[in-house]
Design a protein around this nucleic acid. Sequence first.
DNA 1: CCGTATCCTTAGGGATACTG
DNA 2: CAGTATCCCTAAGGATACGG
Lengths: 122, 122
Amino acid sequence: MEDHSKNLIKYNDKEFNCSLAFALQLIGDKYKSLIIYHLKDGPQRSGELQKSITDISNRMFTYSIRALEKDQLVKRKVYPVTPPKVEYELTEVGKTLIPIVLELNKWGQEFAKKHYLYAPAE
Amino acid sequence: MEDHSKNLIKYNDKEFNCSLAFALQLIGDKYKSLIIYHLKDGPQRSGELQKSITDISNRMFTYSIRALEKDQLVKRKVYPVTPPKVEYELTEVGKTLIPIVLELNKWGQEFAKKHYLYAPAE
DNA sequence: CCGTATCCTTAGGGATACTG
DNA sequence: CAGTATCCCTAAGGATACGG
């Protein structure tokens, strides 16, 4: 029976003394958790997924999804057809993040309501 | 009865069409959620708090804590003594983030265990 | 349709030094 | 002790163009 809480995590030549800092390295940037959120209901075509995330550039979409793939949170499926068709979906480990992003999403929603930040409906 | 899910959130001259993106703006950077995590058990002296977050520079500590303060997630208490003493603590709204950062922390821990990323104990 | 590559700009963030 | 200010550098990230 070991207490891991003080132990060092090593990943890709980087070191983390806190598992939260480590988790943030994996999904804590501007787009990764948005991608996970938009994959929560199942596989998505590449183009659709990218369009669903407003204001993401092509470059950052590719960059983020490749990183998620490398960390085994997202799976890539290529259909050998013309024109090419690619789908992304969460892996089993990736799915364990869904409750967290859902909670954070809900938190943001409630914060915005409480502070009256929602723009009036047109 | 309104569905806010598609509505626009406006905050500090920025616009967000997704409450998750908005939440990430508030706490999704490299240090803010670490600060919240380290304040979870109550008020902390400024110096102690900063030391508890390894590898944060003075500049980024100040920057992050000021942002959290401005967003009313963290409260600052100044004791008028010499030498100066300053404490930070979570506001009521800030406290509602604790379960989320705890979950994310736990997730990182389990991911690290599963992939054998913990460095061997010396 | 999907992805990579290149170029370029901005913002994130460290180090140091200095004030109340 | 707590915080600000300056300097400077690296990396995040947008725009565009091109290839399978």
